[in-house]
């Protein structure tokens, strides 16, 4: 990707400004800031209900320098489609000259669960939009409930670890694969392990004609029970342990963005967070669940490798 110069980026004011009320060390504002760093065109942002929307638009203040519209949990995909279509129609009548880009944000609650049908519809209709899911693997805005993105064995307030149950029992769904199944021009998965990865992927998604989807894993210090300062380190562990593979699919062609050099067991990633603390109790280490997490990660990695190989054939 050419034309990316960090020094030049510092001279631009980002769409998300200071003074938003996200928690200290939250990964979501970092992801949103990085996402827009490489984009030069004017943008319109739609935010589904969620931490990002609630904390960046505390009435009567707004932390957005660009037109921002808050919609309900379930319809960010529909709202961004409508805005894009309206712009297209008005542009046809000569009311707009600029090339405006349309970006929707949703958390994993608003994307994996509640907003899935609106997102699916937007992707299927082929609007020229970018949908970014900042995925912190649970409903953080309402108090750490489990979502369809919460990984197996994680302790959330509606799937708490206790004497009977070891946290969430089910595996998360793979939304990036669901988006790929729509056969859209660009799908990517990334996290905060390397700022350039987020910047280039979102830039590419926004510049792609047609629908694009980017799934960004962001840590929530409160739910993941990590030190707020560790956001980049935990994301690096997620990538290195293959828990969260970073890859992109452009026009059906898979590309792995980063392949971990040395093998890091998923145990290291789980151990770094308090939401898995019940697996590592001194007198009762749940090796069965740790091994099952490793098996899931290995199977997911093999599946991805197969898809990469078959797309390059």
């Amino acid at each position: 990707m050419s034309g990316l110069n960090i020094k030049e980026m510092t001279k631009r004011e980002g769409p998300l400004c200071e003074g938003h009320r996200m928690c200290p060390g939250c990964g979501a504002p970092t992801a949103v800031r990085q996402a827009f760093m490489g984009i030069d065109d004017p943008i319109v942002v739609v935010g589904a209900t969620g931490c990002m929307e609630v904390s960046s638009t505390v009435y009567p203040y707004s932390a957005w320098r660009v037109p921002f519209m808050h919609v309900a949990f379930e319809n960010a995909g529909a709202a961004i489609s409508g805005i894009e279509s309206a712009h297209k129609a008005l542009r046809g009548r000569g009311m707009f000259r600029e090339n405006i880009k349309f970006v929707a944000f949703g958390g994993d609650g608003g994307t994996y669960d509640i907003g899935l049908q609106a997102l699916s519809g937007a992707l299927e209709r082929g609007h020229d939009i970018t949908y970014i899911c900042y995925n912190n693997q649970g409903y953080m805005n309402t108090g750490a409930q489990r979502s369809g993105a919460t990984p197996k064995s994680a302790s959330a307030t509606t799937s708490p670890a206790g004497l009977k149950l070891p946290g969430k029992l089910q595996r998360p769904k793979n939304l990036t694969e669901i988006a790929e199944a729509h056969d859209i021009p660009y799908v990517a998965q990334t996290t905060l392990h390397n700022p350039m990865d987020v910047i280039t992927k979102v830039k590419r998604a926004v510049e792609t004609k047609g629908p694009a989807f980017v799934n960004i894993l962001v840590p929530c210090p409160l739910f993941w029970k990590i030190d707020p300062a560790d956001q980049a380190q935990v994301c690096k562990l997620a990538v290195d342990s293959r828990f969260w593979p970073v890859y992109e699919v452009a026009d059906g062609e898979y590309k792995l963005s980063y392949e971990p050099k040395k093998h890091v067991p998923v145990e290291d990633f789980l151990k770094s967070q308090g939401r898995y603390a019940h697996l590592f109790k001194r007198d009762a280490v749940r090796t069965d669940l740790i091994e099952s997490a490793q098996r899931d990660v290995d199977a997911q990695w093999e599946k991805l490798k197969m898809r990469i190989q078959s797309s390059q054939r």
Partner: peptide, 10 residues
């Protein structure tokens, strides 16, 4: 709400 007004919040 007006844009970038959160810059008044310390």
């Amino acid at each position: 709400t007006f844009g970038a007004t959160s810059r008044e919040v310390e």
